[in-house]
């Protein structure tokens, strides 16, 4: 037993992470994407490797802060951070740093399966009572919500893509093992192709 964490509930969540991320990135336009390590990297890559994705193979806890720096540098472009609950929990302070800057073009999505998926599906704190969107609102985000159903997700999609931010959405997804879909691993390649693609457009 792990404190007050619930080991069973995320196995029954109706939303599936790979479909959620594919929908987030369908018709992405000129969206800039930072993906936190683990499942969000595999899921964004499964939706189609893209030079304007920056997948993090490490730097756990850094995805939201990286999205912040990018959003401040390019206020003319929408920045979407797609990360996991374990990665977000390691960098919760970044939510207050984002709240202090309030970039309108930044949207953070946590695909929350309540698990450390890469290390044996151990429970994260989100399997308990912690409510990440409430923390984001308290930190000064313009909006935040928890998404639990397909209808809620469809309604949230245009908000995630276009509404004034900073925005935070926790999408509760089923705890499940899925095949890997790996992007390039070389950090210099990922950085250079992102910068080249961004400067060409």
């Amino acid at each position: 037993m792990t404190g007050n964490l619930d080991a069973a509930r995320a196995e029954g969540y109706p939303l599936r992470r790979r479909e959620v991320v594919a929908a987030l990135l369908a018709e992405r336009g000129d969206l800039l994407v930072v993906a936190g390590l683990g499942a969000p990297v595999w899921d964004t890559t499964a939706a189609g490797d893209h030079p304007l994705n920056f997948p993090l193979w490490g730097a756990m806890g850094g995805a939201a802060a990286m999205g912040l720096g990018l959003a401040m540098a390019r206020p003319d472009r929408r920045v979407l951070v797609i990360t996991g609950d374990g990665e977000m929990l390691m960098g919760l302070g970044a939510l207050s740093t984002i709240g202090a800057q309030r970039p309108e073009n930044l949207s953070i999505v946590v695909c929350d399966n309540e698990r450390y998926g890469e290390t044996g599906m151990q429970l994260t704190h989100t399997a308990g009572t912690i409510d990440l969107p409430t923390i984001a609102v308290a930190a000064g985000f313009a909006g935040a919500d928890t998404i639990r159903s397909d209808n809620e997700f469809k309604a949230a999609l245009p908000i995630i893509r276009e509404a004034p931010g900073p925005l935070f959405h926790s999408i509760k997804v089923r705890a499940e093992d899925l095949p890997f879909a790996m992007p390039p691993k070389d950090g210099v390649t990922l950085k250079d192709r992102f910068r080249d693609a961004l400067q060409q457009r």
């Binding site: 995805a63 720096g69 970044a94 740093t97």
Partner: peptide, 19 residues
């Protein structure tokens, strides 16, 4: 960009350079 911990700054500035 005041930070809550220094490591945030490394990620923030990496994002800045992407932009």
């Amino acid at each position: 960009v005041p930070l809550t911990t220094e490591e945030e700054g490394i990620a923030v500035l990496a994002g800045a350079w992407l932009g």
